[in-house]
């Protein structure tokens, strides 16, 4: 394992589905603070501060992933 593929905070959830990811690296280029590439797959950086990450960039990463492997959800906080 080269890191987590799913993380949830109080307000956000980001995941990479390894049944789909084919390692193009688009996500890591779009949001390097959150995604990294290793062994031809994308992983979440264990130390990433999800709540501080640029939400627009996360939406772009989700949109541009050619394998539709990235999910970014915002929970409307309670």
């Amino acid at each position: 394992m080269s890191g987590p593929v799913e993380r949830t905070t109080a307000t956000r959830r980001v995941s990479v589905d390894h049944a789909l990811c084919s390692g193009t690296g688009h996500c890591a280029e779009t949001v390097p603070a959150v995604f990294r590439l290793a062994d031809r797959r994308a992983w979440l950086r264990p130390d990433a501060d999800l709540d501080a990450a640029d939400a627009q960039a996360l939406v772009r990463a989700e949109t541009i992933c050619p394998w539709m492997a990235v999910t970014f959800e915002r929970q409307e906080s309670t």
């Binding site: 390894h18 049944a19 789909l20 990811c21 084919s22 797959r41 050619p66 394998w67 539709m68």
Partner: peptide, 8 residues
């Protein structure tokens, strides 16, 4: 995408 993913 699923049918042509790396793992498949």
């Amino acid at each position: 995408v699923r049918a042509l993913s790396a793992s498949r």
